[in-house]
Design a protein around this nucleic acid. Structure first.
Lengths: 107, 107
DNA sequence: ATTTGGTATCTTGCAATGCATAGTATTTTG
DNA sequence: CAAAATACTATGCATTGCAAGATACCAAAT
């Protein structure tokens, strides 16, 4: 799979998953990995960045299965950004597909 | 519009347009610009790369309107790659959208 | 004749972002 | 102890798009 497609989209994926419910980093890696290859070395710096710009906040919670989990929760600003980004993405896909489509789908 | 979304997709756009018919660089810029912002400084290095890896070949043709045009034509390998890339892209979009969806539309 | 402007190509170096790799560290369970 | 779950950091690399500028050709305006 073309690695470049992922550029810029991981942030949106993380935000969208967090909009569903609060999640911890390890969980995000596993969830996203079902669809897109991704590693921890990618997620944690991204999460840190999202926190720095105020899109998410965090809280700790004990776990029965290992180290305590750090949950990430969308802020209000984060929710707004998520919606905008998602809209941008959908528009972008539409534009690209219209370029790709051309006219002849008959192959 | 998130500039990162473009990563990796411009190559596919160029290839897809070339599959339709032979085009010269300036024409590609104009055509793609209708949908996605793009500049010449992006296209020409990309076209050179595509030629280096054997996806396209070129031929010159005079123009009444200015400098001679360098037309780009897909090679057989280029055609195959185009189809693969397009498939990859469509799959990628599907996966991302399923991650974004959340509230299962119909499944 | 010179300038301007549109058409057309190409080069260079920079910025942004994700990736791979390789660590460190903690807690719980077996 | 070892393994699995979980969090975090660091470094250097690869890819790719972009801005900016150089070059060249042609036609119309000055």
């Amino acid at each position: 799979m073309n690695a470049q497609f992922k550029k810029g989209i991981l942030e949106l994926c993380v935000l969208a998953l967090l909009k569903e419910k609060d999640r911890y980093g390890y969980d995000l890696v596993n969830e996203i990995s079902k669809s897109i290859e991704i590693s921890e070395g990618t997620i944690y710096p991204l999460l840190r960045r999202l926190k720095n710009v105020g899109y998410v906040k965090t809280y700790l919670q004990e776990s029965q299965e290992g180290a305590p989990r750090k949950y990430y929760k969308l802020t209000l600003k984060g929710q707004e950004i998520t919606d905008e980004l998602k809209q941008d993405w959908l528009e972008f896909v539409k534009k690209v597909n219209s370029l790709l489509g051309g006219e002849s789908i008959n192959e």
